[in-house]
Simulated scan of single mutants.
Amino acid sequence: MARSARRAMVVASPFLLAWAGVLGIFAALADRLPDRLATHFGSSGHADGFTGPGAFLSVVTALFLVPGAVVGWLAFRSRTALGARRALVAVGYGTPAQLGCVFGLLLLANADAGAAGSEPGELPLWQLAVSFAVGAAVGWVGWLLAGLDPASPSGDTDPGRGPRLPLAEGELASWTRTVGSPVLIGVGGATAVLGGALALAAGPPAGLPPAAIGAVTALLSGCRVTVDRRGLTVTARFVARPRLRVPLERIERATSREFRAMELGGWGYRSAAGRSGLVLRSGEALCLRLAATGKEFVVTVDDAATAAALLNTLAERGRTAAPEG
């Protein structure tokens, strides 16, 4: 429990610190800020969009605290060491640092704007470059901190064992199921609604990106899993692409087991040291041991035992039929 709490604090702290930093700058400059803040700047650096201070603080709070709470909760529930997700932790540090720097520079650009007839300040592009440099530096700190929580080596199992589905010589068979993720549907819908609210409060440029991301997340919240003579194929439920395929020759062994989403750190396509997979929910999962690399690939889906048995039979048939070199 204590280790989980430490992980949650490690991944959530940059969001909290960035939020507190922006609020601190706002409080320090409160007497010098105009009634309407310049929040959007054109390529020339001049202001062309404005927002009230209350709306500005609401957006800042939502952008930092909501993602911070989500990643903190996921880290608390996860059994995966942060060392297996160093790249994600680095991004999780760099993103709020870069956004916090942008918001801080924006507030400084608004200081004394409108006083004595002065024009709103400018936000030149070189300052945005500075914010990305700050994000990269803080992301490196996250990379180093994640390394203090090393990934545990994945255990190995006997590749010669695994269920089989009896098939007569020359007999063909296929298996298919659909699976959906209530979590991704909820997250996608909430993100789309938040994007719509941002579009109304701060303009389409601020709201359309999260609205689009939310819509795509909801659209890709379900998939069809198929096993046949080509191997394992996973496609989105409503669109033909993206598609993921693991051919039979890459499959060393297939099994099924109960799988918790937090074993891979959450929902969606996930990757960790020695393991990757498409996790749409907790529950029964198809687990593949990949040839050559020995890594595990996981897909959560109902009736995974049948899929594993058919894959083992088809893969064994393919190895038997392959000419010896």
Rank of each mutant, 00 (worst) to 15 (best):
P182K: 07
A18M: 08
G135L: 03
A28H: 02
G83D: 03
F50S: 03
L220H: 11
S44E: 15
F41H: 14
L57F: 06
R36L: 03
L220N: 02
R7F: 03
S4G: 14
A47K: 12
A116R: 14
S58R: 15
K295M: 00
T217Y: 05
T300W: 08
V138S: 05
E324N: 06
F76P: 00
V234A: 07
D303S: 13
L248Y: 04
G268Q: 10
A5N: 01
A307M: 02
L280Y: 12
A321I: 02
A129V: 13
L286A: 06
L208E: 11
R7L: 04
A197R: 03
S118F: 01
C101M: 14
F297K: 02
F238I: 01
D35S: 11
L232S: 08
A30V: 02
L144W: 06
P34E: 14
Q98E: 10
L37P: 07
A113L: 01
A27M: 09
V134H: 11
P120D: 09
S152A: 15
R32K: 11
L167F: 07
G117V: 00
G155W: 05
P242T: 09
L123V: 07
W267R: 01
E122A: 11
G180F: 00
P209E: 13
V130P: 06
W19H: 11
L106M: 15
D31T: 12
R6T: 11
Q127C: 03
T176C: 08
C287E: 15
R86H: 01
A133T: 05
R260K: 14
A211M: 15
T300S: 09
G294R: 13
A136C: 05
A84H: 04
G147E: 05
V234E: 11
D112S: 11
T61F: 05
V60Q: 12
L88T: 13
L198Y: 11
M1I: 01
D156I: 07
A190L: 12
S43K: 08
R270V: 02
R177N: 11
F259C: 04
E258F: 08
A202N: 03
D158F: 06
R289G: 06
L310I: 04
G214S: 08
G94R: 10
G83I: 07
V134I: 13
A307N: 02
A87F: 12
A308S: 13
W73F: 14
A38G: 14
